[in-house]
């Protein structure tokens, strides 16, 4: 690995939001390929973050800083990668469903997905099915992530999936669901494509759903 890629990986691990874009720019100036900068530098760093998190050597706030650094670097890289025709991980729309104000879980999954390299569009909380359908039409995401904390709002996940079906969009996106009262069985019952029991599992699932893991 070249020195600059090594530095970039370290910047990601350290969650260095200021330095990461600078290092990305420096790598580009040195003539490195955007895809190599991503995969051999940033993703290497993020993989190490994942390993350390699992081993209990890094904690959530640090992982989120790394995810932010990742996004700061991707801001520069993404347009170059797109124009070079490289395949990116894709877009995720995240929402806490209608009637539910609890969004910490949704936020965590969104940030973890950003760390994995996804572009994340966060629709916020208390989001009605129609707004999600509208956002899918507008942003053409690969994945829609739905979150709920209450059993009464869990139903909104089913309503949303049905609304996506009715709009003819269901086969265009994968739907993943999560939240404290949700489980794999419920996800299956309402026709979701997957369930994540925690934020890291959510990001892993997102990768799986786009065929990247």
């Amino acid at each position: 690995m070249s020195k600059i890629l090594e530095q970039l990986a370290t910047a990601i691990i350290e969650g260095d939001i200021d330095n990461t874009p600078k290092l990305v720019q420096k790598a580009l100036d040195e003539g490195l390929e955007p895809l190599s900068i991503l995969n051999d530098g940033m993703v290497m760093g993020m993989n190490e973050v994942g390993r350390r998190f699992k081993a209990g050597e890094m904690f959530v706030p640090e992982v989120l800083m790394s995810a932010e650094a990742m996004q700061a670097g991707l801001k520069i890289l993404r347009p170059l990668l797109v124009s070079s025709g490289a395949k990116l991980l894709g877009k995720v729309i995240m929402a806490t469903v209608q009637g539910d104000l609890h969004d910490i879980g949704k936020n965590l999954v969104g940030m973890m997905c950003e760390g994995a390299g996804f572009e994340v569009i966060d629709l916020g909380f208390d989001v009605p099915a129609e707004r999600i359908v509208q956002a899918v039409k507008e942003h053409k995401p690969d994945i829609v992530g739905l979150s709920a904390l209450l059993t009464t709002t869990m139903r909104q996940m089913a309503y949303t999936i049905k609304a996506l079906e009715e709009a003819g969009l269901r086969d265009k996106v994968k739907v993943m669901v999560g939240g404290a009262p949700v489980d794999a069985e419920f996800a299956k019952k309402i026709g979701a494509d997957g369930y994540g029991s925690n934020a890291a599992a959510g990001a892993e699932l997102a990768k799986k759903l786009v065929g990247a893991a």
Partner: peptide, 8 residues
Amino acid sequence: QMDMQTTV
């Protein structure tokens, strides 16, 4: 608190 390892 949120457990910073598990998010629980």
